[in-house]
C-alpha cells in the first residue's frame, strides 16, 4: 500500500514536471553552463589546488551544489499545490502521509540523478578522469543529500505556506553553505579562520568525501566523515519532513 501510494504521488509529480519544458531544459542546462563557463577557469590553477585533474575537484562541488540548491527550492512547488488545495485533498484520503512526502521527494531525487549523470558524462568530454565506481558512490551521496534537502524544503514550505517567508530563509541558508562548503574552491586554500568556520559545515565533509571518491580513495577518514554526515542529514531531513506532513492529523 505504502509504495503504491508513493508511486501514485511520484508519477503525478513527474508527469506534471515533464510537461513543463522549462523545468526540463533549465534542469539540464544548469550543469552544462557551469561546466562550460566555469570549468575552463579552474583548469590552469588545478595544480595549485592540489589536484591532478581539475574536474575531480570541480565536478563533486557542482554535484553537491545541484543536490543542495535544486532540492532546497523544491518546496516552492509545494506551496503552490497547497494553495490550490491539492495537499488538503490528498490528506483527506487514507493515503500514508509519508507517502505524500516521499513521492514528491523521489521526483526531486530523480531530477538530481539525471542532472548528475549528465554532468559527469559531459565532464568526461572535458577531460575528467578518475574512478568510475567512486563516481557512482559520489552520485549516491549527492542524491541522499538532495533527498534530505528536498524533505527539509517541503517541511519548511508546509510550515510557512508563504513564498515571501521562505525565500529569505532559504537564501540566508544557501549563501553561507555555498561559500563555506568549499563547493567551488577547496577550503584548504583559505586562511586559518575561514577553515575553522567551515569545519562546522557538514556539507564541506560531503564535498571533500565525494572528491576523494572521484579519485578512487574509498577508505579514508574524509570519506568516512562524508558518508556519516550524509546519512545524518538524510535521516534528519526525512524525520523533519514526515513529522510536518503528519502534523495536525487527528
Amino acid at each position: 500500500m505504502f509504495w503504491r501510494e508513493t508511486y501514485i504521488v511520484f508519477r503525478r509529480q513527474l508527469r506534471m514536471a515533464l510537461r513543463n519544458p522549462a523545468w526540463v531544459i533549465i534542469g539540464l542546462v544548469q550543469p552544462i553552463l557551469y561546466l562550460v563557463l566555469f570549468g575552463p577557469l579552474l583548469e590552469p590553477i588545478a595544480g595549485q589546488l592540489g589536484a591532478q585533474n581539475a574536474y575531480t575537484l570541480f565536478v563533486p562541488g557542482l554535484l553537491v551544489q545541484l543536490g543542495l540548491f535544486g532540492a532546497l527550492f523544491a518546496g516552492f512547488g509545494l506551496i503552490a499545490e497547497w494553495r490550490a488545495g491539492v495537499i488538503e485533498a490528498e490528506r483527506v484520503t487514507p493515503a500514508s502521509r509519508t507517502a505524500l512526502l516521499l513521492g514528491r521527494i523521489l521526483r526531486d531525487v530523480l531530477q538530481l540523478f539525471v542532472q548528475g549523470i549528465v554532468l559527469i558524462g559531459l565532464a568526461f568530454l572535458f577531460g575528467l578522469t578518475g574512478s568510475i565506481l567512486g563516481m557512482v558512490f559520489g552520485l549516491i551521496l549527492t542524491v541522499l543529500l538532495g533527498a534530505a534537502c528536498a524533505a527539509a524544503s517541503n517541511a519548511l514550505a508546509l510550515t510557512t505556506k508563504s513564498e515571501d517567508v521562505m525565500a529569505p530563509v532559504l537564501n540566508s541558508i544557501a549563501l553561507p553553505v555555498l561559500l563555506l562548503s568549499g563547493i567551488l574552491l577547496p577550503m584548504t586554500i583559505g586562511p586559518q579562520w575561514l577553515q575553522v568556520v567551515s569545519d562546522f559545515m557538514p556539507t564541506k565533509y560531503i564535498v571533500n568525501a565525494i572528491r576523494e571518491l572521484f579519485t578512487g580513495d574509498f577508505f579514508t577518514i574524509t570519506t568516512m566523515w562524508g558518508v556519516i554526515w550524509t546519512i545524518v542529514l538524510f535521516a534528519a531531513g526525512l524525520y523533519v519532513g514526515t513529522r510536518t506532513f503528519r502534523k495536525e492529523n487527528a
Binding site: A84, G85, V86, A89, V92, P94
Partner: peptide, 28 residues
C-alpha cells in the same frame, strides 16, 4: 467521506482526468 474544500483540489496545470484517477487511486 468525501470532502470538497473551499480552496479546490486540483493543480491548475494538471489534467482533469488524471487528477481524478490519481485521487481515486489514493483511496486504494
Amino acid at each position: 467521506i468525501g470532502y470538497v474544500s473551499q480552496s479546490g483540489s486540483t493543480s491548475p496545470e494538471a489534467r482533469a482526468g488524471e487528477e481524478i484517477m490519481d485521487h481515486g487511486m489514493l483511496y486504494g
